[in-house]
Design a protein around this nucleic acid. Structure first.
Length: 483
RNA sequence: CGGGGUGUGGCGCAGCUUGGUAGCGCGCCUGCUUUGGGAGCAGGAGGUCCUCGGUUCGAAUCCGGGCACCCCGACCA
């Protein structure tokens, strides 16, 4: 095995969250910096988490009728210019290829920042009649955005994602699709990643460049800053018009299809770290953890080892039969104590210690990662207890995150209160909002933005005046400082 | 793009003020003893001190120019 530093994180989460985050990501070997500025390697342990995210989302998307495809990395620069808002949104972040094979290209190619344009160019060839609709596509890909300020997983020049692109006959169908995906994401993030999210709509200034409107999911990180966990857009007819995608309707009229796009990214891995991690390192939700149970065999002499080995094998087998992802750490060049810390750093939800004493007493010692609570378990109930424990850790992480969010959610009805909340405590703050340009700017001066207009309650409840200007509010929404 | 910081064995750093044999901790290799919360002892390997130029008998150290990376702020999944 290569040289590895497996110290517990040197930084304390409370003292410097940002330093703690980077330290934790590096030391737990989720990712590492490379020679290329703003880019990172996703190391095997981090990639294993991403693969589990992929597996789950991919399965859900297929179950709802979506098909995977793959579109090119290179997009003609002129494509980006076809949709006005889209160019404006992405132009500053583009990486552009000007040379190939030693020759200057006649038209520069952009490295995709997202694939709407190249996909719509193809859909214009593929869609002719209403019988060709809906088109339900997804692709797993890398994208590049030349970010200035980067941070592992949260914002890197290149990142991995899934991007869905669909086309429909009507506005309603497109909206239903966008909502369906939002719902799919929310369930996945809450149930698998144990991260509670707030769902809602983005304001004009926060929506995707080129969308009619954007649905979002916002979560609160361990430092009370918000993070956008994924988005689902109703693109209206903006891209079909820009790329001249049309279909013959049932009544013979020529129409532009209504489309959606939606994505979740490797950022989710960063969110898991920032929501659940503690001073000892990661705490992975069992459903997403690459390794759910690590068995640490403990022995002194060779004869001890001979004695525990068959016992450990039986326990391992027992857990494997219950579809538990289990790893046995037989390394003999490090001590058990080292392994305890090592696996805690990596966030494995449950550790089972088995030594000669346990073999003699027909038991094993369980230590759960979330609370680090330690208890002996009888041999015959190991499997059931392990399953139960994993469930309990999953629950408990979700509950903790939810409680944290509750404590860090408030409402404000004066600008002073809002400013103080943002400055002192962070978190989500509910306000009544007019969404005018000047008020948005004033909010930006407080380093905050409107994160979401919650779907139902946001517009239904009686509104007071805008917290900023005192004019009539348009909706009630959640503002926060964010990543 | 503004502000700050750093560049010295794999990693983390000291040395620089006041030029003169390149050092410490961790990790790595070998051996013995160890192993229920980050093992001990002994021996060993490993460095064009970011780069280019200048000053000097002599530069990691002083001077000048580059470059790179990291962190903090406005844009972004």
């Amino acid at each position: 095995m290569a040289t590895q530093t497996t110290d517990a994180t040197g930084e304390r989460r409370e003292d410097d969250f940002s330093a703690w985050y980077i330290d934790t990501v590096l030391k737990s070997q989720l990712a590492d910096y490379t020679a290329v500025r703003g880019s990172m390697v996703i190391r095997p342990y981090g990639y294993a988490i991403w693969e589990r995210i992929q597996a789950h989302v991919d399965k859900e998307l297929k179950a709802t009728g979506h098909q995977n495809a793959y579109f090119p990395l290179f997009i003609p620069l002129s494509f980006i210019h076809k949709e006005a808002e889209h160019v404006e949104g992405f132009a500053p972040q583009l990486a552009v290829v000007t040379h190939g094979g030693g020759e200057e290209l006649t038209e520069p190619l952009v490295v995709r920042p997202t694939s709407e344009t190249i996909i719509y160019d193809m859909l214009s060839k593929w869609i002719e009649s209403y019988r060709d609709l809906p088109v339900l596509l997804n692709q797993w890909a890398n994208v590049v955005r030349w970010e200035i300020r980067t941070r592992p997983f949260l914002r890197t020049a290149e990142f991995l994602w899934q991007e869905g692109h669909t086309a429909h006959e009507t506005f309603e169908e497109a909206d239903t699709e966008a909502r369906l995906i939002l719902d799919l994401y929310v369930r996945f993030i809450e149930e698998e990643l144990a991260i509670p999210v707030l769902q809602g709509r983005k304001t004009e200034s926060e929506k995707f460049a080129g969308a009619l409107y954007t649905y979002t999911m916002e979560a609160l990180m361990g430092d009370a800053k918000a993070l956008q966990m994924g988005t689902s857009h109703n693109l209206g007819q903006n891209f079909s018009k820009a790329f001249d995608v049309t279909f013959l309707d049932r009544d013979g009229s020529r129409e532009f299809p209504w489309s959606t796009s939606w994505a979740v990214t490797t950022r989710l891995v960063g969110a898991i770290v920032m929501v659940h991690g503690d001073d000892k390192g990661l705490r992975l939700p069992p459903r997403i953890a690459p390794t759910q149970v690590v068995i640490i065999p403990i022995w002194r002499k060779e004869e001890d080892r001979d004695k525990i080995e068959p016992y450990v094998a039986e326990v391992q087998h027992d857990l494997l039969e219950a579809d538990i992802r289990v790893h046995v750490d037989w390394r003999d060049q490090v001590t058990p104590g080292f392994k305890f810390n090592d696996w805690e750093l990596r966030g494995v939800p449950l550790r089972i210690e088995i030594g000669p004493r346990d073999v003699e007493n027909a038991q094993a010692v369980f230590v759960r990662r979330d609370s680090r609570e330690k208890r002996p378990v009888d041999r015959e109930s190991i499997r059931a207890s392990a399953l139960e424990c994993l469930d309990s850790v999953q629950q408990s992480l979700f509950e903790q995150a939810k409680r944290y969010r509750e404590v860090h959610t408030a409402s404000a009805n004066s600008w002073e209160t809002l400013a103080r909340l943002l400055e002192d405590r962070g978190g989500f703050v509910w306000v009544d909002w007019c969404d005018s340009q000047p008020c948005t700017q004033k909010l930006a001066a407080e380093k905050a933005t409107v994160r979401a207009i919650p779907l139902e309650e946001g517009e239904a409840i009686p509104l007071g005046p805008c917290i900023c200007c005192g004019e009539a509010a348009k909706f009630r929404c959640v503002v926060a400082r964010s990543y």
